[in-house]
């Protein structure tokens, strides 16, 4: 195929694309906001989240394609395909929200805040992070309550015939880890100069300079 050796599109065309290599989060460079051995554990969790995100998305693609192949080639659908995808999307979302919090990627409407000078902006960021953390800690508690209630009721997934709560365990975990990240962000803002979206990312839409990292 003559296409094979065509040069790839130039970097200028990719610079502002949806997902360029330069934008990728380098997990090896991630520093936890927690000190000592706790930081070590937290870095491990961050790695785990990254793996869940990537494998979750790949598994979803494999599962969906397998269903099509099953229907056309073998004349049989995978009756559980829908349930597997539903479980994967919960896993991806709730692993992703704490990963996004670590890297300051949550969507927010920052227009008014951006107009403030650094001092008030920093105070606002402390208040926002602390309140977000409080809300998510509370919700992680109720999520745990919800998962335990589902476990006690014994609901099963109709096709897979496995307990439904198995697919929900990452919900309280994800909410708790996200809350933890916001709590650390509040603390980081209080103890470091500048305004921080997360313990590793400075406010502003340009990526943080490496020397700004603690």
């Amino acid at each position: 195929m003559s296409d094979t050796h065509q040069p790839a599109a130039g970097p200028d065309q990719r610079a502002t694309g949806p997902a360029t290599a330069e934008d990728d989060i380098d997990d090896a460079a991630y520093r936890s906001g927690l000190p000592g051995p706790l930081g070590f554990v937290d870095r491990g969790i961050a790695r785990l989240e990254a793996v869940i995100l990537a494998l979750g998305v790949l598994a979803m693609a494999v599962n969906t394609v397998a269903n099509v192949v099953g229907r056309f080639v073998f004349g049989r659908s995978l009756y559980f395909a829908e349930e597997v995808n539903a479980a994967l999307i919960v896993l991806i979302t709730f692993a992703g929200i704490s990963y996004a919090a670590r890297h300051g990627r949550h969507i927010r409407m920052s227009a008014i805040l951006d107009m403030l000078p650094v001092g008030p902006r920093k105070l606002a960021m402390i208040a926002i992070s602390a309140l977000t953390a409080a809300l998510l800690f509370l919700l992680s508690w109720y999520a745990l309550d919800y998962v335990m209630t589902q476990a006690s009721r014994g609901r099963v997934l109709p096709a897979l015939r496995i307990p439904q709560w198995w697919t929900l365990v990452w919900v309280p975990v994800g909410l708790f880890l996200t809350a933890l990240q916001y709590a650390l962000t509040a603390l980081h803002n209080a103890t470091h100069p500048g305004v921080w979206l997360s313990t590793g990312v400075k406010d502003g839409y340009a990526p943080a300079e490496p020397e700004d990292r603690p």
């Binding site: 997902a19 989060i25 709730f94 692993a95 929200i97």
Partner: peptide
């Protein structure tokens, strides 16, 4: 991974 992150947020 990047797809998963966008999906999550």
């Amino acid at each position: 991974k990047s797809t998963g992150l966008i999906t999550a947020v």
